[in-house]
């Protein structure tokens, strides 16, 4: 059996994340589900979250993408994420390190802070928005 037939992850199979707490970038394995920030030592979830139904949560914290599907209805105090896609309903404060994409049938109620925002015509929005390359520091 040739050596290249083994399924060994290549050293360059890594991705860069930004810590949700200290805002510092670091490299992690692409398949890692959670890590500890090497700067502030806080635990970080890396997995993508997908909501397809009603969910009430205190905080949604992940460095990955959060997706609220068409039939999803998420009520939360805060979404702290690496990116956000909303096709359904979302109520709560949003702090995203990556792009926030709001579909044309989405309903988003709450303050939004993100570097990039794209909104489809028809979305229902209500809140304070801070969109730009350097959003205000998360509280």
């Amino acid at each position: 059996m040739a050596a290249n037939e083994y399924n060994v992850p290549s050293p360059d199979d890594r991705t860069t994340i930004i810590c949700l707490y200290c805002d510092r970038a670091q490299e992690v394995g692409r398949k890692a589900m959670s890590v500890t920030c090497k700067f502030c030592h806080k635990p970080l979830r890396l997995e993508d979250l997908r909501f397809k139904e009603y969910q009430a949560r205190r905080v949604i914290d992940t460095c990955g993408m959060v997706t609220v599907e068409k039939k999803g209805n998420v009520v939360t105090d805060k979404v702290n994420c690496g990116g956000l896609i909303v096709r359904g309903k979302l109520k709560g404060k949003i702090v995203s390190r990556g792009p926030v994409l709001i579909g044309p049938e989405a309903e988003v109620k709450g303050d939004v802070s993100a570097p990039v925002l794209a909104v489809g015509a028809g979305a229902i929005l209500d809140g304070q928005y801070a969109i730009g390359p350097k959003p205000p520091a998360a509280t």
Binding site: P99, E107, V116, L117, A118, V119, G120, A121, G122, A123, I124, L125, D126, G127, Q128, Y129, A130, I131, G132, P133
Partner: peptide, 19 residues
């Protein structure tokens, strides 16, 4: 009634959008 934001737009303020 409707808001369309292209990626790259920079803005801050209160947003009320909907019919």
């Amino acid at each position: 009634s409707k808001l369309v934001v292209d990626e790259g737009a920079v803005f801050s303020g209160h947003v009320t959008v909907g019919p």
